[in-house]
Every structure is written in structure tokens, then in C-alpha cells.
């Protein structure tokens, strides 16, 4: 593994850390598709900032695009609460439209200049080692700094706001009754998700954002018995997929971000079959004997909501 490969793995791993930590809470809160909505809404914001500033200034991009994504999602949620568009149809309507706007903007105004459709889909993880910043004399890859900062910020938020996060995710009514401002926690989480989605865009493109958020967390949920271990497992899944995916991408000469996502999906499939308590294998073998706790079989297949 060359130094460049290492930089790619580190960047992906740090990004996966930020995504998996947030994704765990989103999955537990029934908001697994929020990153999908946000990443769709963020794209026109990224293009807009690009058009206004004429470049990819990191800070302006982060602030502008995050703001745009948050505003879109909040406006959408307000609209849905008002009952005018009370269905998941609205979600499948609004966010693809925003994304379309972004795609058109990308292909119309910015093509060829560091921002094109390919990077929207595949991300630019491969180029991560090439763009460096001068940091006290040493050249440090820019994306490594950005994703590292994202991971540190998310980790700090999770540690600092552990109790409100856990309470509002587990039992929002109890949280509210004890004086936690549930809505505020939700908003904060949304802002953080949007910021990480913007950060992730550069490395993995817009569409794979949901993969980095949801798949490691969903894998961990199959295995973990406690929240702290679920977070740890989700982060570990992120790192293992970063390593496996990068190696696979070198072998297959395929998209690094896509391969990492696929590695995560592979780990999910493994957990799905072999997880000690919830794995399918265990269910089939032990389910009949030991009467596993009943779950609602989910009669509403596919009636999920993103953005809600």
C-alpha cells in the first residue's frame, strides 16, 4: 500500500466515522433517509455557492451549501406538518427535483472546472492525496484535514450531548417531559448531517452519502446490544469498509467510493446472516425453539419517509 493509498483509506475512514456516528442516531430515530434527502438538497446549494464565489472555497461552500440544505429540509418539514403534502410522495417529489436542479447546474455552468457530473456521482476520493495544503511547512492533503475535522467535531458533539441525544432517540416524550428541547436536538442533528453531507460530497459524491450514513449503522444495529457498542461497531464497519473498498478498487480499477460502499454492504449482508442475536441464521435455527421477542413484521413495506 502506497502513501497515497493510505491517505485515501484515512480520508474515507474519517469520513465514515463522522457518518457512522450520526447515522447510528438517525437509524435509531427512524430518520435513516434524512441523509439522502439532505444530500439531494445540498447539491443545488453547492452549485450556487460555486457560481457565486467562482471557486471551491471550502468554508464558503460548507456554510452556504449546508445552510441551503438545512433550509430546504426545514421548509419541507414545515410543509409536511401543515398537512398539504402529507405523504412520502412529497419526499420522492421534492428532493429529486432539487437534485435535478443541481445536476443541471453542474452540467450547464461548471462542467470541466473541478465540478462535473462524474464527481457528483463518484466523488473524488482518488484525487484526495493530490490536493494538499501547506501546514507549517509540511504538505498535508486537504481532504484529510477536512474529513478529520468533521470526524472530530461529530465525535465531540456525540460525547458532549450524549444524554440529550440518547434520551430523545430512545424516548422523545420522556425527554420532553424532563425538559429536553427535542425539537432543538433534532434541528442540531439536521445541521450536523447537512454539514457532513457537504463535506462528504467532495470525496464520495452526492448519492453515496446515504450509504456511508446508513449501512454501517444498520450493520451495527444487527450486532450490538448496547448503544455504545453500536456506535463503536458502526465506526469499525466504516473503517474496515474503507480499507477493503480501497484495496478492491485498486484491484478492479473501479470507483473508490463505490467500492467502499459496496464493502460496507457486504459487511451488512454478513451481519444479516450471522449476527449472534438477530442474524437470519440464528432466527431460523433458534427462532422456533426459543420464541424470539415478537416484532411487528412491518406491513407497510416501503412506506418510509426521508427528511421527515
Amino acid at each position: 500500500m502506497t502513501a497515497d493509498d493510505l491517505v485515501i483509506v484515512l480520508t474515507a475512514g474519517l469520513l465514515a466515522t463522522a457518518c457512522a456516528l450520526l447515522g447510528t442516531f438517525l437509524v435509531l430515530r427512524g430518520r435513516a433517509l434524512l441523509p439522502d434527502a439532505v444530500s439531494h438538497a445540498v447539491l443545488p446549494g453547492i452549485v450556487g455557492v460555486y457560481l457565486v464565489t467562482g471557486g471551491r472555497n471550502t468554508i464558503a461552500m460548507l456554510l452556504g451549501a449546508t445552510l441551503f440544505g438545512v433550509v430546504c429540509v426545514l421548509a419541507f418539514q414545515a410543509l409536511r406538518r401543515s398537512g398539504i403534502v402529507a405523504s412520502d410522495a412529497a419526499i420522492a417529489l421534492v428532493f429529486p427535483a432539487l437534485f435535478s436542479l443541481g445536476v443541471l447546474g453542474v452540467s450547464r455552468y461548471t462542467s470541466g472546472v473541478h465540478l462535473d457530473l462524474d464527481s457528483t456521482i463518484y466523488g473524488e476520493l482518488t484525487f484526495a492525496p493530490l490536493r494538499t495544503l501547506d501546514l507549517g511547512g509540511t504538505q498535508v492533503p486537504r481532504s484529510l484535514l477536512i474529513t478529520g475535522a468533521a470526524a472530530v467535531v461529530v465525535l465531540a458533539v456525540v460525547v458532549l450531548f450524549w444524554r440529550p441525544l440518547v434520551l430523545t432517540s430512545f424516548d422523545p416524550e420522556f425527554a420532553e417531559a424532563t425538559g429536553v428541547r427535542v425539537r432543538l436536538v433534532e434541528r442540531g442533528l439536521l445541521v450536523l448531517v447537512a454539514a457532513v453531507a457537504v463535506t462528504a460530497f467532495e470525496s464520495i459524491g452526492a448519492i453515496l452519502v446515504v450509504t456511508f450514513f446508513v449501512v454501517p449503522a444498520a450493520t451495527a444495529q444487527l450486532v450490538a446490544r448496547r448503544l455504545d457498542s453500536m456506535l463503536g461497531i458502526a465506526v469499525a464497519v466504516g473503517w474496515v469498509s474503507a480499507l477493503l473498498g480501497q484495496r478492491a478498487a485498486v484491484r478492479l480499477d473501479s470507483s473508490v467510493a463505490g467500492s467502499i460502499g459496496l464493502a460496507a454492504v457486504g459487511l451488512f449482508a454478513l451481519a444479516l446472516v450471522f449476527a449472534p442475536r438477530r442474524g437470519l441464521w440464528r432466527r431460523w435455527r433458534g427462532g422456533r425453539r426459543r420464541g424470539t421477542p415478537a416484532r411487528r413484521p412491518g406491513p407497510t413495506a416501503g412506506s418510509a419517509t426521508r427528511g421527515g
Binding site: G30, A32, Y122, L252, G261, L262, A264, A304
Partner: peptide
């Protein structure tokens, strides 16, 4: 079969399909 919630199931399947396609 696995008792996943709809949003998680959709997120995972969407990811699986898309990453496979991209790779």
C-alpha cells in the same frame, strides 16, 4: 424477515444497488 424498519431497509437496499452499479 430481519425486522428492519422501512427507512433502514430502503436505505440499505438503495445503497447496495447503487454501489454495485457504480463498481
Amino acid at each position: 424477515c430481519a425486522g428492519s424498519r422501512p427507512d433502514v431497509a430502503i436505505g440499505v437496499v438503495l445503497s447496495a444497488a447503487f454501489t454495485t452499479g457504480i463498481v
